[in-house]
Design a protein around this nucleic acid. Structure first.
Length: 325
DNA sequence: TCTAGAACCTGTGTGC
DNA sequence: TGCACACAGGTTCTAG
């Protein structure tokens, strides 16, 4: 499942293979992967001047507009915020925005390579010696997608960001060198009235964290997923941020987490971090930290939370009583 | 205004 | 063997 480390692996692949190349042609095989693409003249839903030319464009019109706005453009150095990835276009005011959703893949392949079963969009790129000619977007569950969108100034960014990304908060890597980041997150959590994991998954609060790394960061920090945000301390917030950075750095080094063929890098290779997971997917297994500490080892539990699975150790991540400790 | 849950989507695994 | 159902989860929308 692509979260921040997996998206960063893809971004690095695109930087190596795609940046600086011109889009010669575009094939939209399934316009459902363009459902967030708004036809010209703009894609900023908050700007009346950028209202779509049609209130509900047909899939065909969406695909034609997407194609027209990419053909002949040169793709610039790929950028990332949280789980969003974009390639600025040489027009300087717009970008090709990509979200992988749950099962999206961005592949760089030869044009002659057989089409993947769930191939949604393909871009023919200008020739470069030794480099494949095609950029492909493959998506089994169609939660991800591509769109061409305007770049706008963002107050927390060093440069412009696509309009749909403007509400996304900085990710744990972006704030690693910012000494005030822990305090900002602490105050934001205290203002909330929800469970800690729900807050971690809110991309407008902190970005890049999904279900897997939320469980891993909470395990490392020794905090229960249902802990109320209004009760967390500064120390616990710092522990959580440090844990999130550590687990995602380790995942990045391992090439990301691949449980099946749903996540691969641009060359089609899987990551290996699934072997290092301590909580997520480990239900029934002994907690490695409890065993090392010499305490009676807890057994990793699984519970439904927010319509998805959460994993935790009942010994070192005790469940809060009545929402508090 | 904020929180929580539903909907979107399809391949895989399980039970009958 | 074939069918029905549950499950996986990131984002957006809607109801309360």
């Amino acid at each position: 499942m692509p979260e921040l480390p997996e998206v960063e692996v893809v971004r690095r692949g695109l930087a190596a293979w795609v940046a600086g190349r011109q889009v010669m042609d575009v094939d939209v095989h399934d316009a459902r992967s363009l459902r967030r693409h708004e036809p010209s003249p703009g894609s900023d839903p908050g700007n009346p001047a950028d209202a779509p030319t049609q209130p509900d464009p047909t899939p065909f019109a969406r695909g034609e507009d997407f194609r027209a706005r990419l053909r002949g453009r040169t793709l610039q150095e790929p950028q990332r915020r949280g789980k969003y990835l974009w390639l600025p276009l040489d027009s300087a005011d717009s970008a090709l925005l990509i979200h992988l959703g749950m099962s999206g893949q961005v592949l760089v392949e030869d044009r002659a390579a057989a089409a993947e079963k769930h191939l949604k969009i393909s871009l023919d790129l200008s020739a470069r010696p030794g480099a494949p000619e095609q950029l492909r977007f493959v998506d089994q569950r169609i939660f991800g997608g591509m769109q061409v969108t305007r770049l706008i100034a963002a107050d927390h960014a060093s440069g412009a960001v696509p309009a749909p990304v403007a509400h996304i908060a900085a990710d744990p890597f972006e704030t690693a060198a910012d000494p005030s980041a822990d305090e900002r997150l602490f105050r934001a959590l205290r203002r909330r009235r929800s469970g800690l994991k729900r807050a971690l998954l809110d991309q407008s609060l902190i970005s890049g964290i999904g279900n897997i790394y939320a469980d891993e960061a909470l395990w490392r920090a020794g905090l229960h997923f249902a802990r109320r945000t209004e009760t967390v301390t500064r120390d616990e917030t710092s522990r959580l941020l440090t844990a999130a950075r550590a687990v995602m750095s380790a995942a990045l080094e391992a090439g990301g987490t691949s449980f099946d063929s749903l996540y691969v890098n641009v060359n089609g290779a899987s990551g290996y971090f699934s072997r290092s997971l301590q909580a997520y997917g480990q239900a029934g297994g002994e907690c490695s930290r409890c065993a090392v500490d010499g305490r009676s080892a807890g057994v990793i539990q699984r519970a439904k939370f927010m319509g998805r699975s959460s994993y935790w150790c009942p010994v070192c991540q005790p469940r809060p009583r009545n929402g508090r400790w």
